Simulated scan of single mutants.
Amino acid sequence: MKLYGVAGWKNSGKTGLMERLVTEFTARGLTVSTVKHTHHRVDLDQPGKDSYRHREAGAQEVLMVSGSRWALLHELCDAPEPPFEDLIARMSPVDLLLIEGYKTGTHPKIEAHRQVTGKAPFAGDDPTVRALASDQPEAIVLDRPVFDLDDTRAIADFIAGDLSL
C-alpha cells in the first residue's frame, strides 16, 4: 500500500485538496482510502444514540454495523494516541492511502498553503514535503515543485509519478 500525505497549517486547503485527490485517483481506477488526523476531540456518534450509550457505560470498543458501512470506535481511556504506523497497519489494503495531517510524519507529502493563514510554508525545512500547492504559487520560491492549489490533475500526476503509480 502506498502512502502520501497532505499537510499544512489550519485553513490551508488540506481537506478540499484531499477531496479532489480522492475523486481524481478513483476516476483513474485506483482504490483509495484516507486517514484524517486532528488535534481536536472527535466524537463520531451523538448523545442518546445506542453506540454513545455503550461507550459512556464503559465499553472500550463499539462496532457499529449497518447494511451500508461499519465503524469501529475505540476509546483510548487516557492512553496516549497510538503511533501512526500502528494505525496504518489496521487499514485494509488499497492502491493509495492519502493522509491528511500528520505534518511531522516521515511519509512523503504535499504541503497545502494559503496566504490567508499568515504563515510561511514549512516545506523548506522538511525533506518529506515533496512539493507545495498554494493559492499564490507565483509568490513561492522553493527548491521543489510549486503547484496551484486548484490544479488537482497536476498535483495528482506529481504524486503518481513520485509513487510510481
Rank of each mutant, 00 (worst) to 15 (best):
D151M: 02
F158W: 06
Y102A: 10
A27C: 06
D50T: 08
V141G: 00
T128H: 15
A71R: 08
K109Q: 03
V32F: 13
L87A: 03
G124W: 12
G48N: 06
D162Y: 14
D143S: 12
L97Q: 08
D43V: 07
E75D: 12
T38R: 05
R53M: 11
E19G: 00
R144W: 02
D150G: 14
A57C: 09
L44C: 10
L21H: 05
H37I: 04
E24P: 00
P121C: 00
L165R: 10
D78M: 00
W70D: 08
L3V: 14
N11L: 07
D126F: 02
F84M: 13
V62Q: 04
Q136E: 13
D148C: 04
D50K: 08
S92A: 15
G13L: 02
Y102V: 08
A71K: 07
Y4S: 07
D162P: 06
D148N: 15
A123D: 05
C77G: 13
D86P: 01
C77F: 04
R20W: 03
L73T: 05
M64V: 15
S12E: 05
Q46A: 12
I88F: 04
C77W: 04
T23W: 02
L98P: 08
I155Y: 14
T15I: 04
P127K: 06
A156M: 12
A79V: 02
K36H: 10
W9Q: 07
M18T: 08
E24M: 01
L73K: 03
V6A: 06
A59F: 07
T106C: 02
V62R: 03
R41D: 13
A79I: 01
H39D: 07
T26G: 00
D162K: 15
R20P: 00
G8P: 01
T106R: 12
V32I: 11
T31M: 07
R55L: 05
L98Y: 07
L149M: 05
K2T: 11
S68W: 09
D50R: 09
P137D: 01
P82W: 06
D125A: 15
D78Q: 09
L142S: 09
T34Q: 01
P108T: 12
K36R: 10
A112Q: 11
R144M: 03
A7K: 12
L96Q: 10
D95I: 04
K2P: 01
V65S: 15
R28P: 11
K109Y: 03
L97T: 13
F25Y: 10
F84H: 11
P47L: 02
K103R: 15
L97M: 10
G124D: 14
M91Y: 11
I140Y: 03
I140F: 02
S12H: 09
K14W: 01
T106S: 15
P137K: 05
Q136G: 01
D125N: 14
H107M: 12
H37C: 04
G124P: 10
K2V: 07
V141R: 14
L44S: 08
G101T: 09
T23F: 02
E56M: 13
G105R: 06
L97W: 07
L76F: 08
R144D: 03
